[in-house]
């Protein structure tokens, strides 16, 4: 039995699947990272992904161009981010609540909008054609390497983008003036504003970027992963992303590793369902990342608490 599992896991197609499954989570996790860095909790990622997935697909269908579709999804994500920002920064809706509202729009509003624009109910299966799906690319040279080639080559363009963005966002946050200002705003707003950095502007930029990333995630889902939009498509990935952000300590690279962990668990679950003996543990396997997240949060909280306590009870120094 374990032999069977072992054989099916250490295979290139399984590793390929992990990367494919990880990509949308990674987009959303990066979206969570960037918002959180500026001190904004973006719990609306789930809804943002649903809505941008729908519009990305529709725009691609109307223009018959996957590229314009992806751009459209990104723009919709930005707009949703700015809307959340408007309600939370301007009208002072608690940011968690405006995120929940976006999720509502994502859950049912999308079905309504789909019907309004196309007359279709629940999914876009009828509209799918190959030219509006995100193409995959073979990487020359690498695709010749056994196993590694099978694992890394032949992914969708957006899959590569997701992993490239990990580096880009890390560089953005740590190596550019805008990233510096954003982190400063998230950590100590009054220090930032005392040197003339506009806290509000930084927060708007952060949540718009967060929306753009969620938009990529949405486009990936509808225009590649599910090959069309359907209502249960995002399936909690926006929330998983929040967990990945938290577990990755809010850093892009950390978020990537925790996203991979989620990807691994989901890929395992699919694999395991086909195996006798351990098939009946598929749900518990799927549960692992969430448990790990909670444990991760606990460990993190304990370490912070320890530090504080060590501080409080310092021996007297003369």
């Amino acid at each position: 039995m374990l032999q069977q599992l072992y054989e099916s896991i250490f295979r290139a197609d399984f590793l390929f699947a992990i990367i494919r499954i990880t990509a949308p989570i990674l987009f959303a996790a990066l979206a969570a990272v960037i918002a959180e860095k500026a001190g904004v909790v973006n719990i609306g990622l789930e809804g943002m992904m649903m809505i941008s997935a729908l519009f990305g697909f529709l725009i691609a269908y109307w223009t018959q161009s996957w590229a314009i579709g992806v751009l459209g999804a990104m723009l919709i994500g930005i707009l949703l981010g700015l809307m959340m920002g408007f309600f939370s920064f301007k009208l002072k809706t608690n940011i968690i609540l405006s995120g929940i509202a976006v999720n509502m729009l994502g859950a049912g509003g999308t079905i309504f909008l789909l019907h309004m624009f196309t007359g279709l109910r629940g999914n876009t299966g009828a509209l799918v054609s190959p030219n509006i799906l995100i193409p995959t690319i073979d990487i020359p040279l690498i695709n010749k390497i056994p196993i590694l080639g099978e694992m890394l080559s032949g992914h969708a363009i957006l899959t590569y983008l997701a992993f490239i963005l990990v580096v880009v966002i890390r560089v953005f946050l740590y190596k550019t003036p805008l990233g510096l200002k954003m982190r400063a705003v998230g950590e100590n707003p009054s220090a930032a504003s005392s040197v003339g950095v506009s806290v509000l502007k930084m927060k708007y930029i952060a949540i718009a970027m967060s929306g753009a990333l969620a938009g990529f995630g949405g486009a990936f889902m509808s225009m590649y992963y599910s090959q069309g939009w359907n209502q249960g498509m995002v399936a909690g990935r926006g929330f998983i992303a929040l967990a990945a952000q938290a577990m990755g300590r809010g850093e892009p690279v950390g978020a990537m590793f925790s996203s991979l962990l989620f990807g691994l668990a989901q890929a395992m679950k699919t694999k395991v369902s086909g195996l006798r003996g351990i098939a009946s543990y598929n749900y518990l396997i799927e549960m692992i990342p969430y448990v790990v997240t909670i444990i991760g949060l606990v460990v993190y909280a304990i370490s912070i608490k320890r530090r504080a306590r060590r501080h409080q009870l310092k021996p007297v120094k003369e």
Binding site: L180, R183, N188, A191
Partner: peptide, 11 residues
């Protein structure tokens, strides 16, 4: 120079 420092600790 404010009494409470206007600095970002992680930077």
């Amino acid at each position: 120079v404010h009494q409470h420092f206007m600095l970002v600790p992680s930077l």
